[in-house]
Simulated scan of single mutants.
Amino acid sequence: MDCLFCKILNKEIPADVIYEDDQVIAFNDINPQAPTHVLVIPRKHIATTNEIADEDTALVGHMVQVAGKIAKEQGFDESGYRTVFNCNDHGGQTVHHIHLHLLGGKPLGWPPYFDENLKKPLS
């Protein structure tokens, strides 16, 4: 399998890992979109959110809990943060191994694609 995140899990590619347990790892995104931008990925390869099976429900819940723990450790759990799963190309998914984006450390606008400098949605 030629999956970037599987290669990170197998230590074939380095990552700035900030959390690890028997179900998931979390590491800093190499192209951060906020002061803190962490990816939480399961050790189990699941290509997209469309492939999440009933037996994966606890795993996905654990990913969300880990994101909350990291937000607390980073000191922005009370001020707020965003968690995002992207699915497939139109959803912005570039690596087909589910991953939860944790973004925080600054006020985050909505919609997320809104460019504050241009004052219009990005095209």
Rank of each mutant, 00 (worst) to 15 (best):
L4P: 06
C6H: 09
C6I: 03
C6K: 12
K7F: 01
I8W: 07
L9E: 11
N10Q: 15
K11Q: 11
D16K: 11
V17G: 06
I18S: 02
I18C: 14
D21N: 10
Q23R: 15
I25C: 04
I25H: 01
I25W: 02
F27W: 03
N31G: 08
V40Y: 04
P42V: 04
P42G: 12
R43G: 01
H45V: 03
A47S: 13
T48G: 11
T49M: 15
T49H: 05
I52N: 04
I52A: 05
A53P: 07
D54E: 15
E55P: 09
T57Y: 00
V60H: 07
G61E: 11
G61S: 14
H62G: 08
M63S: 14
Q65A: 09
V66F: 13
A67I: 05
G68N: 13
K69S: 15
I70T: 08
K72R: 12
E73R: 07
Q74I: 06
D77W: 01
G80A: 14
V84E: 08
C87W: 06
N88Q: 10
H90P: 15
G91V: 04
G92R: 12
H96I: 06
I98Q: 02
H101W: 01
G104T: 08
G105E: 04
G105A: 07
K106G: 03
P107I: 02
L108Q: 05
W110E: 07
P111M: 07
P112A: 09
D115W: 05
D115K: 11
E116T: 08
E116D: 07
N117T: 10
K120R: 14
K120Y: 08
P121G: 05
P121F: 02
L122F: 01
